[in-house]
Amino acid sequence: MRKLAIVAFLVFVMVPAGFPQQAKAPPAPGADFPKVVLTAPDTRSERSYLGLSGRGKFDISQIKAPVVILEILSIYCPYCQNEAPNINELYRMIEADANLRGKIVIVGLGAGNSAYEAGAFKKKYSVPFPIIPDPEFAAYGQIGEVRTPHFIGIRKTSEGSPRVFYSKTGAIGDPAEFLAKIKKAAGIKELK
């Protein structure tokens, strides 16, 4: 009987601890964005867009812009494919606005996608912003196991730590309306 109790303990305590089955929820607005290690883009122009000094690893807090729109996508996801022109348009709108350029950047995270796959997606849909490959779902698992596409708005606090102000699954809809929503939620007028 004592042996059975030990077996039961091991099954109910050790196994779930080692093999978590619950999908982790993404950070909600108001929460700190987790320190997730990402691989810097290969191209100098994309590193420059993010304000990163070199190759290697980085985390969101190292991005120069105060506001980051993180799109968690998969190149295999039909909605992400359909949504690509809208996100490209959102990028163009930000870059065309002198008050927003350099203050808001878009970063894609290719959940389960290799560098080749992320590159193929960028080529197919002429994506102008970086898509960071996450082939083993490492970053995806840390951020939250969301359906794709999922958009997270992140703004640095005055102390420089990244805080979530927006988090939603699904298409953004009209890019202009989405941008207005992001500007409002981020308190964009306060940006310097």
Binding site: I72, F137, R147, T148
Partner: peptide, 12 residues
């Protein structure tokens, strides 16, 4: 508990 489900993201 060990088998669980296949890892990966699901499209919306």
């Amino acid at each position: 508990l060990f088998l669980g489900s296949a890892a990966g993201s699901e499209s919306d």
